[in-house]
């Protein structure tokens, strides 16, 4: 509880810090302003490094993973989704979405027990539908904190200053799975469990998107810019928690070409 309070205060401070010395409108507070690429040179360098790493490790691993029997892939995907509830539920609460928090808590309880550590998803059959994941970056965004600059993190990939701060929150007590595996010696889990789950999650994501990534790379003149655009659109959609299609577009741009 104390940690959650610290995180809450940290987020409030971040939000206020973003407005310090301004009229309340700056790059961290304007929700729909284009996200600046303040460290583009460095970002492109890290992007190239990540791509090299992907070619050597993640892509071959993802190709191997795709060859596994479907029940194994489905079970692994279900278990990872189940674990993600541990971050989603506190963020549902922090965003004031108690309905989703209740739904996801029930999903975690049912799938971890009846669903054997999350390998199966009986909760969906019982009416607890799978809902979009939430994280601390999304919560900060929902509270009105702007994305800040775009950054590419080594190994982890595209992010923003806000989302990177959100990720830090997970390591400061905001992720119960990290707490019981790495942070605290619980006798039940080891560091390996955490890092194995994170690595599997990365490979699982890569395997699901292998064709889409190849297609995007082959049809991009500036792959870095395409990935950045898609990442930022995706985060904008997730932060707004909106199913509205028009929210992903700036309609004024389309209207402008009418006059040409």
């Amino acid at each position: 509880m104390k940690k959650i309070l610290i995180l809450y205060l940290l987020s409030i401070l971040l939000a206020f810090n973003a407005n310090a010395g301004t009229d309340g409108e700056n790059s961290l507070s304007k929700k729909n302003q284009p996200v600046k690429d303040c460290f583009e040179g460095l970002n492109r360098g890290i992007f190239a490094f990540n791509k090299g790493l992907d070619n050597i490790i993640f892509e071959p691993a993802a190709k191997g993973y795709r060859k596994l029997p479907m029940p194994i892939k489905l079970g692994a995907s279900n278990a990872l989704n189940n674990l993600s509830n541990l971050i989603t539920v506190p963020n549902n609460f922090l965003q004031g979405n108690l309905g989703n928090a209740g739904n996801n808590s029930m999903r975690f309880a049912i799938n971890s027990t009846v669903g054997v550590l999350g390998l199966w998803d009986p909760a969906s059959r019982l009416g607890f539908e799978r809902i979009d994941k939430e994280d601390y970056g999304q919560t900060l965004g929902a509270w009105g904190v702007g994305a800040g600059c775009y950054v590419v993190l080594p190994v982890l990939g595209p992010s923003t200053v806000r989302d990177a701060v959100g990720s830090l929150a997970s390591f400061m007590g905001g992720d119960p799975w990290y707490n019981v595996t790495v942070k605290n010696n619980t006798q039940h889990f080891t560091d390996f469990d955490y890092y194995a789950s994170r690595a599997t999650s990365g490979v699982n994501f890569r395997a699901k998107n292998i064709d889409a990534f190849d297609n995007l790379e082959n049809n991009s003149m500036d792959f870095y810019a395409s990935v950045k655009s898609l990442y930022l659109q995706d985060r904008q959609k997730k932060v707004s928690n909106s199913k509205k299609i028009t929210n992903t577009l700036d309609d004024s741009d389309w209207e402008e070409i009418e006059t040409k």
């Binding site: 991009s220 003149m221 500036d222 870095y224 810019a225 395409s226 950045k228 655009s229 898609l230 659109q233 995706d234 959609k237 299609i245 992903t248 577009l249 700036d250 741009d253």
Partner: peptide, 18 residues
């Protein structure tokens, strides 16, 4: 717009970057 991601917007941002 695939899964909420606009292809035209992606293209626009790629061209602008170049």
């Amino acid at each position: 717009i695939i899964e909420g991601l606009s292809l035209a917007r992606t293209q626009k941002e790629e061209f602008n970057s170049i």
